[in-house]
Design a protein around this nucleic acid. Structure first.
Length: 643
DNA sequence: CAATAGAGCGCT
DNA sequence: AAAGCGCTCTATTG
């Protein structure tokens, strides 16, 4: 207690401190649900570590054998050390009670992957520590998005300190108290050192605005991590029953059609069944595509095996009339949905699942991509199915609680809007200004028709597919494949596009030239000033250099869309707070150009207006030379939003 | 046994 | 000359 009091007094002298938690328990990776066993702190001239719930001491006092049943059903005995009991430790309530003033203050709170630590401690503090923040994984990523920005690799590369060869942090409860003490303390020292270095580097690199946006959005990320997203376990359980039965049927269909048993999840076995000659018991199908590895081998004229022939959905669709291929396709759809979205969420005998009292707590990583978009993991809520009927049923499990609704908002054609913004005057921008949708503009431009003359199919092929392709820098071959047209026709379409939309191609060349001339490494910049470094713009290898050119152009567009998304999240979050409805309206997830919020029905319309203002208010519109548009829907479940 | 690579597939 | 992700499964390697 005396030491803790001294720590509080010492740390109170300074305007910034770094902190880190070590967590334990069955949900250690979920900050809203974990148990904090250790807290470490670092500031000028001091670093301390505070154990609160470490289960073992320092000495091994014996050994026991633990029987475990392996996959093959055999029981094996594993040796396991018996540790002395841990010393008496301070209670969490005591520690966080005494540290509360530090966390409540306006000191800069520093951590590596900070939302995790913020949410972990907020449970015990009883409040979310307020800004200012400094997340060193985000500063490290802004300074170089192409390197490993985890704490361990950064400490090793920047400070020559390789301190966690045993992976202590992965399961601290299995390591001696003193081992974890040393480890945990370094986990606070690292971010403290990085903070001091990165503050200056961010300014020198011209990243001040991008940094401000990131720290603003971090408060939203922490809020989302502590609140989670609403999900119906009951509906998922219903889906589990349905899909499990269906999977058995579809599995039987495959065996029946193939005339044999196989592991349908094994690409090698699939390949043999599909492509082996009929005499050998296969289907004798023609090989239409190779796996990425197989394609490499083929070019190198190396010997091919069954594993080198593609059995992906596109390859199977090329043989849709074959009963085995058709049965496998059907099986795979069900298998994917069941394993990834239903079983993983609900859990089983071995794993506890991901749903807690009607909520699911994913991590949204603001540093998760090289372009500036978010990524999502554990679980990934950015790839929830929607395309197929069965997929939409999965999405339906994201359902607002009784008395609440979801506000689903997404920017329309945001990447094309931004392409028009950056490319400037021309048909695409003019189309947006005249309120004509971009796919129609592209299709009519290429075909020389009026919008009235354009058929739906023409709009899809000459508009949507072409626009998609242009955004990513694709060529005629791919267009022919995707639009299911002749290569010659695809080449003609692209030629027409170049004639009708020269400003797009001028923009691309300008971007590449500007980026290439930057030192020491080529980079492009987004609206917020975020950088995407593209070293391969100087590569002598054509394949790599052209790839880098596509990345450079796409990164401006995709990264700026990411900026707008992050800005609108901050504006919505602040809007809810300022309206005093933050406990009745909150953001729950984001999918690149989409925001999903939940709101209590008593404040629903107010909350929707705030989200609208956040995404397409005048301040947002003023940033872009083309009218920003977004769609807003109020629904009970996510599958009901159709935009 | 754990870690890793590769194939495949869900999303924008 | 198709941009950006994360998860599950199999098969292989350490």
């Amino acid at each position: 207690m005396d030491q803790l009091q001294a720590v509080v007094e010492y740390f109170s002298q300074f305007d910034a401190f770094a902190f880190d938690v070590e967590s334990i328990g069955p949900h250690r990776g979920i900050p809203a649900q974990n148990e904090v066993a250790w807290l470490s702190l670092a500031t000028h001239g001091a670093a301390v570590v505070i154990p609160m719930a470490h289960p073992i001491g320092n000495r091994i006092i014996g050994e026991e054998k633990i029987p475990k049943t392996g996959k093959d059903g055999k029981v094996r005995n594993y040796k396991s050390p018996i540790w002395e009991p841990p010393p008496t430790q301070l209670r969490r309530s005591t520690v966080f009670g005494m540290l509360a003033p530090l966390f409540k203050s306006d000191r800069v709170k520093i951590a590596h992957n900070e939302p995790f630590d913020l949410v972990s401690v907020a449970k015990y503090l009883g409040f979310m520590p307020p800004p200012p923040y400094h997340d060193t994984i985000v500063s490290s990523w802004l300074l170089d998005e192409n390197r490993l920005n985890g704490l361990k690799p950064r400490m090793k590369e920047d400070y020559g300190l390789d301190y966690d060869k045993e992976n202590v942090g992965k399961q601290v409860e299995k390591f001696a108290l003193s081992t974890v003490a040393t480890y945990g303390r370094l986990d606070a020292i690292g971010p403290w050192l990085m903070y001091k270095r990165h503050r200056q580097l961010l300014a020198e690199e011209g990243l001040t605005d991008a940094w401000q946006l990131e720290m603003d959005v971090m408060a939203v990320v922490a809020d989302m991590a502590s609140v989670g997203a609403p999900i119906s376990a009951a509906w998922l359980q219903h889906l589990r029953d349905d899909l499990s039965a269906e999977l058995e049927d579809r599995e039987a269909d495959v065996y029946k059609a193939a005339g044999r048993i196989l592991n349908i999840s094994s690409p090698v076995q699939k390949s043999e069944v599909l492509y082996a000659p009929k005499q050998a018991g296969g289907q004798g199908l023609k090989i239409t595509a190779y796996t990425p590895g197989g394609e490499k081998k083929r070019r190198a004229k190396a010997e091919l095996t069954w594993a080198d022939y593609s059995t992906d959905a596109a390859a199977l669709k090329a043989h849709a009339k074959n009963p085995v291929a058709a049965a496998i396709l059907a099986y795979q759809e069900t298998a994917k949905l069941l394993s990834t979205y239903v079983n993983a969420y609900l859990g089983d005998d071995e794993n506890p699942g991901l749903i807690f009292d009607g909520r699911i707590y994913a991590s949204f990583l603001q540093y998760g991509t090289v372009t500036g978009r978010f990524s999502s993991r554990n679980p990934n809520l950015q790839n929830i199915p929607i395309r197929t009927k069965a997929g939409a049923k999965i999405r339906r499990s994201f359902e607002a609680a009784e008395g609440w609704s979801l506000i689903v908002a997404d920017y329309s054609a945001i990447e094309l809007v931004l392409l028009a913004h950056f490319a400037g005057d021309g048909l695409l921008k003019q189309g947006f200004l005249n309120g004509i949708d971009p796919h129609t503009v592209t299709a009519t431009g290429i075909l020389g028709k009026s919008p009235q003359e354009l058929t739906g199919a023409e709009r899809t092929i000459y508009g949507k597919t072409v626009n998609f392709l242009i955004g990513y820098g694709g060529g005629a071959k791919l267009l022919a494949e995707k639009a299911e047209i002749k290569l010659r026709e695809a080449e003609e379409i692209i030629k027409q596009h170049q004639t009708q939309f020269p400003e797009i191609y001028a923009f691309k060349s300008r971007v590449i030239r500007t980026a290439r001339n930057r030192e020491p490494v080529p980079y492009v910049k987004t609206l917020s000033g975020r950088k995407r470094r593209v070293p391969d713009l100087h590569s002598p290898d054509d394949y790599k250099r052209f790839g880098a050119e596509r990345q450079a152009v796409n990164s401006i567009i995709q990264g700026t869309a990411g900026d707008l998304n992050k800005m609108s999240m901050v504006r919505a979050y602040r809007g809810f707070k300022q309206a005093g409805i933050h406990d009745k309206a909150r953001l729950v997830l984001t999918v690149h150009d989409e925001i999903v919020a939940e709101a209590h029905d008593s404040v629903l319309e107010q909350a929707e207006a705030i989200v609208r203002e956040a995404m397409i208010g005048e301040e947002m519109k003023a940033l872009i030379d083309v009218p920003l548009k977004a769609d807003f829907e109020i629904v009970k479940d996510w599958s009901a939003a159709k935009s």
